[in-house]
């Protein structure tokens, strides 16, 4: 359950950023979670209410934007959608797909009052 720590980071960064901008309440926070990041969006959502209680994010909406995994074959160069269990190129079967996208774990934006 490292999602608990990840969710605490969301709350910490959002609070800090809101304060820096003179915000008194965060109404929504948008995070980007890549399909290859090893973080389960459902688990983050599950932790969010508990982690935001008593902070500027109390009652805020959590919006999760999923980013699909994208890989490139080291042999034939084909780019393809991948998940954590894609090991071989869908075309030529080569192993060791390079990861181009999907490891993101970012707080994208906040709505503040």
């Amino acid at each position: 359950m490292h999602e608990l720590g990840i969710t605490r980071s969301i709350v910490d960064i959002a609070e800090r950023t809101a304060r820096e901008h003179g915000g008194t309440r965060v109404t929504s926070v948008t995070v980007e979670i890549g399909a290859l990041s090893g973080v389960i969006p459902d688990a983050v959502e599950f932790c969010f209410e508990a982690c935001s209680k008593g902070t500027l994010l109390d009652g805020a909406r959590l919006i999760v934007e999923s980013i699909p995994g994208l890989g490139r074959c080291p042999d034939c160069g084909r780019e393809q959608e991948i998940d954590n269990h894609s090991f071989a190129c869908g075309d030529c079967g080569a192993l060791g797909l390079e990861r181009l996208q999907g490891e993101e774990l970012r707080i994208k934006e906040l709505e503040v009052d």
Binding site: G23, R106, I107, K108, E111
Partner: peptide, 8 residues
């Protein structure tokens, strides 16, 4: 309702 870009 201000939006703040974060990207962190």
């Amino acid at each position: 309702g201000r939006t703040i870009r974060v990207g962190e």
